[in-house]
Design a protein around this nucleic acid. Structure first.
Lengths: 196, 196
DNA sequence: CGCCGAGTTGAACTGAATCAAGAAACGTGG
DNA sequence: CCACGTTTCTTGATTCAGTTCAACTCGGCG
């Protein structure tokens, strides 16, 4: 599969990327998906992890009221999957779709276990991803517990300045847990403040 | 250390609890802590994982406004730690304290790695804990994004019926992301509904 | 050109927060 | 075992951040 971003990403996170890893990665193919395409649906058992080479994916749920809740955006160099569904082999409650035309690596559900078997560094790297994920979710819970819409938005643009530019505003609102109208007003307020 | 709950807990989650595991666990001692005692403070590097044999611990943060935010309760048979701090060796943003007089096993930060080295089943079990943790945090984010105070409370009592009885109400409120006054009113409303 | 999704703005509304005060439960020391 | 102080919970009145509903603008795309 040539020089993928995944290889470079791993190389920058694992001391020495050995042949064992290359061997596995070379079996993966790049999949091209169109904007809007859905890769995972509620009810499906998620059997892949996606690594975004190019483009932007989104992980979200739809609640009983029909409202979409964005749980994660995944731009270049991000892994995205429904970990619960993959690990526990259960139907997913979530959706994954493409927000832009994208190129993604489709990794088999057991790819990390297979590589981990042969390579301790990769195993460590995998644990690191899991811990990062937890850290990230926990921080978000804290923000939802005690920060205002404005504070949450400021935190978001600080953390993901690039995503703001690529994603429709109503999806950012959904991620932040506010209505699109509210986010629009928050932005207006901030613009006024900055002028002063 | 005799028949601890940890052994029983592991035995019910791992196909065969082998000698390797016993050998490690036997080096751990039970620590008795009094209600109110603080096991981890913001700024400390968390170097242990606690397993609750008896009693109840709580994992929380204190934000700039001085407000406590409860991230987790840990009754009997729960592990509790600041995973970020342990894994990344960073100062913690959180606190852990005892809500009741408790007996806890104090596990060294690298205990799971050490056991995992010798026992594949334990390694799998550890991954399972991490995935459960992620699942749990994600569900909570969803509730914070789209459920009312009442819905969140109902979900909580369904999931942790026992904890409701052991924890001051204002801490439940903190976990749910509402004020104690609001939770009191939610409960009142529910009581009225149930009478009808 | 015309339409449609995305964003903005306004006005009315509402769930929850805040502020304040009192009642109930708890535990600690005498 | 009682008394007193502290913490917990409740209730009321008021305020406020954010929602809802509706109308309008703008930019892009078929």
């Amino acid at each position: 599969m040539g020089e993928s971003k995944l290889i470079r990403f791993l190389a920058s996170n694992i001391p020495i990327v050995k042949n064992e890893i290359y061997q596995h990665l070379e079996t993966f193919t790049v999949k091209k998906v169109k904007k809007g395409e859905i890769l995972l649906r509620q009810g499906d058992i998620c059997s892949h992890t996606y690594f975004v080479e190019k483009g932007l994916l989104r992980y979200y749920s739809i609640d009983k009221k029909g409202k979409e809740n964005v749980l994660q955006f995944a731009p270049e160099n991000w892994f995205i999957t429904d970990r619960e569904s993959v690990f526990f082999n259960q139907p997913s409650n979530y959706y994954i779709n493409a927000l832009e035309d994208s190129e993604i690596l489709v990794l088999e559900k057991d790819f990390s276990e297979k590589i981990a078997l042969k390579n301790k560094d990769f195993e460590r790297f995998n644990l690191q991803l899991l811990h990062n994920h937890i850290r990230h979710l926990q921080k978000r819970i804290e923000l939802l517990l005690n920060a205002t819409a404005e504070e949450r938005y400021l935190y978001f643009i600080n953390l993901y300045p690039d995503i703001i530019l690529r994603v429709p505003q109503h999806m950012i609102a959904s991620y932040l847990g506010v209505t699109p109208e509210s986010l629009s007003r928050v932005r207006k307020e901030l613009a006024i403040k900055n002028k002063k």
